[in-house]
Nucleic acid binder design. Structure first.
Lengths: 144, 144
DNA sequence: CTGACTGCAAACGTTTTGCACGGTA
DNA sequence: TACCGTGCAAAACGTTTGCAGTCAG
């Protein structure tokens, strides 16, 4: 567990217990949406307000401490900002994972073809994760 | 202008005037959000209801006739479903453009590294479009 | 001690729903 | 003619705001 306090200070945010636990929860889960975050927080702070969760998500997202991850047909999830990466989304179990790959080639190609000056490349791969592939195989074997 | 009527029939949807114009508008604009679509429709159908727009967007999105385009910090925009492509988004003027590039290489790399069976690769490039680059240069030249 | 943060309640904006009428096939 | 689609109004949902009290620095 990293030194969130110092990081928050850098963003002029106070290290309240609610906020500390929010960050901890986001790091543990990797990616989480507002509802699930709120539910987790309720276990520790029964009187926490949804408004507080929103206010903190917003303040931490605005200054770049957190990032939004938007995927079609899915509620927005949040993650700690980290070095550039892509996302893997399992359309079967909804798992969302980071993957670190080199985007340089495809980015260069797009820049060349379009004339855009590209500052960021967002990639989400949708498919079936290894675990779900296994499960599907077991099922199709059973039903033979 | 393509034969929307036949396409709609394939999806068991009736070709109402409202729906036909929605599709036409989406094709013209390329990508559009609910609000702007509603405003355009009002010009032709002054009594059209927002509920109708939502209902049609939903029915046409569910069966794949339309696709959602979600970009961080932006309202969801809709486009006609078409062959796989990526998106270019200008963070200066908010233009959203299609770009047809080969995603095979980066997709293969991700599949190999992760073990996922990848069915779709969503890519959005964020940057500055050629027009805005020009404008910026003119400004910086003027103020020299 | 002071300003930022919290919880609560109300406000606000967006999306969905139910219903009676009208239009497409 | 039979339903699906429309418009309207209300409901439901998600998010933001204002305020008074509390806590971190």
């Amino acid at each position: 567990m990293k030194d969130y306090k110092t990081q928050l200070k850098r963003y002029d945010l106070k290290a309240t217990p609610q906020r500390m636990f929010m960050i901890n929860e986001i790091e543990q889960k990797g990616h989480i949406d507002i509802d699930n975050l709120y539910k987790s927080l309720k276990n520790i702070f029964p009187y926490i307000s949804l408004a507080t969760v929103y206010k903190n998500i917003n303040s931490m997202t605005q200054n770049g401490f957190l990032s939004e991850v938007k995927i079609p047909k899915l509620k927005t999830r949040y993650e700690l900002s980290k070095e550039k990466h892509a996302h893997l989304f399992c359309t079967n179990c909804s798992e969302l994972k980071d993957i670190f790959i080199d985007k340089q080639l495809v980015t260069n190609k797009a820049a060349e073809k379009s004339g855009y000056k590209i500052n960021d490349t967002l990639i989400t791969f949708e498919g079936i994760c290894p675990k779900c592939q296994e499960k599907n195989n077991m099922v199709s074997t059973e039903t033979k």
